[in-house]
Design a protein around this nucleic acid. Structure first.
Lengths: 217, 217, 217, 217
DNA sequence: GGGTAACCGAGACGGTACGTCTAGTCTTTAA
DNA sequence: TTAAAGACTAGACGTACCGTCTCGGTTACCC
């Protein structure tokens, strides 16, 4: 999904999926009227606008269609459900994917990645992401979309750094990388979901260092 | 909320709240027809039965009322929302609260508490709890209910153990107890929500010890 | 529309119109891509197949297009509406038009025409015709198509016979031919629409004679 | 359904049906909130208002609900389909049922009944009735409703007069009453459906007499 | 022991959104 | 150049629930 080699240039690489439903990269000479890019943009924009004042749960496909001046069918044609639309809308926002500066070692890499994650979840989209994460719980389809589009790229990158760190003896050799990832990211998401207000500057300042110290050799 | 002194006898004490909305323990000689305990039980039972085949999100007040042969109004009179009903239904299940044996030190206490938490989330109710946690994201009222009824008792108990541990020099002095709690519990919930299948015996075996080791002095 | 002279050779002449929208008989070397006869046949066939299980009202252009594996536009380009398509599909069925034997007088002519009409409406297409007649009520365009293609040829022929009969003193002189036609055909259609089951052999046997007797001198 | 004895006082007796879906005549102590008569009236009124500018086909349940400020469910709860609503709306209009003066014989009775029928079909509701008649073709449920509510009362009354007339030797003895009814009513409905504009004063003046003459002894 | 107050079930109410379907139009590529 | 394919906007369909309301009835307490 996300090539580790690219991690610091396009860590979260949310636009990579090449999801055949939403993008047509195939050069097959498609017949008929092509998908309207204008409609797609209108839908994404409308969704983002509505998300400013509403929660994901309150959001309705109907409202998006109305605001985007688009037929409901057009939305259902290209996205399987609300979660998928919101996901795409989220990704389309500028600043979601920003490259990280090159770190001097893997500890610093992880710290930077955690810091970035916290920043992301603290931003005005944090709440939306939390809601998406939640929404996904009950719907395996949505869960897969969330995992593929958002969670995996993020986690894979961190895992890669940790694996590198273990190899280079920066981190403890006894570490299982997957559990290490959970230990790094878990607390952040737990705060997001349980006490989002405590996801503050103070936390962003201290947590990454503290966390990385725990796994350092 | 939950007195720390009781932690090992009734740690999770989910039935304690005496929420004035759901129970009337006040001995004030209320007028009128008293609440029908039969109806309450029917509702709880119906909810639990429905939860076997449906997710919390799929569950509807209407369906509960129908199954319990109860008027919708009766549900709305006693519970503010679906989350509250499900919560009560969950608590009513046997085996949710079980006292823990007395630990020989605070490290062991935390390990036992984490183990218990994992067991709880791995049980057949784990999924329901995850869904409740999620559902709560969009609705502050539900969030408060979930926190008060489930999360706080649990976390407070762990925090108490950690504080004790810090005081007794079992745990690192530099620790902020709140963050330590997040570090202990976060990874568990993160797995629950992101890769519930990895919340397995192996994890239950290893994680608590590993986690506690990290904060030990 | 239908020349009276042809009445007994091709009374109902449903395929006569040479409607420029539906057929291209002009030998002018039309430019551009020629109309696909394959598509036309597929549409007609699909329509007839769908009519076996569905009423005209339940039939949709969309369904026809899908079944015929044809774009909706292709249908819209060649037929103004559903009624027109169904009409063409009906006509394409074999056995709709059959010439009548030469009658010995106008009374017999009318009887034969009524008998033929009843046979037509009793056949497996009778129901479809009734539905077309109905469908036309709400849509003037459809009404015109139905009248031109089906009703007028039929009625004109009967009216012609009646006019001849009046002239030859076979029928009462006081008769207004238009009203006489209504009196002949009305009861048949009324039964068709109100109690189609009563449009039976018995009726076909007795009605035409009875009706003609009423207008005979 | 319609007692013949009442024919001239309440010939069409459209409000008789005592349809269990729409009226509750049973003295059973009904549970639950009773049906809102206010809503029922609002729906009927809205339907009639909309029918002024729209055809039955153009009419939508949604539009009725909106105009009547009523939930769609409320309409679906009490009427099986659009046809039924329109039927009830039609009946509710004043002047639909008007008693006829006492006739001096059965011939005059039939003439008066035919005249009334033509008047009814010529009135501003004529078009709606034609559309209902049509709409009913494809839907057996609607057909039954139309027959029971509108057609039967009307036809039964005429048939009764004809039967009386036959008994009293006013009409030909060879007549089968059912066919006679079709012969009387068929032409009227045929004109209504095929050339409604010809359903004019002239026709109303002449047809009934002409028709009755045909069946007179 | 009658009155009264709060409960109970049932179920109708006005609404909102769902996901599907169809109509008729518009915009491409293929013939 | 036109045909054909298929995406487009628009909006109705009938269903499911929401949270509220209004019934007739029941069950306690309080005078």
């Amino acid at each position: 999904m996300s090539t580790a080699a690219l991690q610091f240039e396009d860590t979260v690489d949310l636009d990579a999926p090449e999801n055949k439903e939403t993008t047509s990269m195939t050069s097959a000479p498609r017949k008929g009227r092509p998908r309207s890019e204008k409609s797609r943009n209108a839908i994404i924009k409308a969704t983002n606008n509505l998300l400013i004042h509403k929660s994901v749960q309150e959001l309705s496909i109907e409202a998006i269609a109305k605001k985007a001046k688009v037929g409901k069918t057009t939305i259902y044609r290209w996205w399987p459900n609300k979660t998928a639309v919101v996901m795409d809308a989220l990704i389309a926002q500028p600043g979601i994917q920003s490259p990280l500066p090159t770190p001097k070692n893997n500890a610093e890499a992880v710290i930077m990645q955690l810091d970035k994650l916290i920043r992301l979840l603290t931003s005005k989209n944090g709440e939306t992401i939390a809601q998406l994460f939640s929404e996904a719980q009950a719907d395996p389809k949505a869960q897969k979309i969330f995992a593929d589009t958002f969670l995996s790229p993020l986690i894979d990158a961190i895992e890669f750094s940790i694996q590198q760190g273990i190899k280079k003896r920066e981190f403890r050799a006894s570490l299982e990388s997957r559990m290490a990832v959970d230990m790094m990211c878990g607390p952040i998401f737990f705060r997001l979901l349980s006490r989002p207000d405590d996801l503050d500057d103070d936390f962003r300042e201290n947590y990454p260092k503290e966390a990385v110290r725990l796994i350092s050799a």
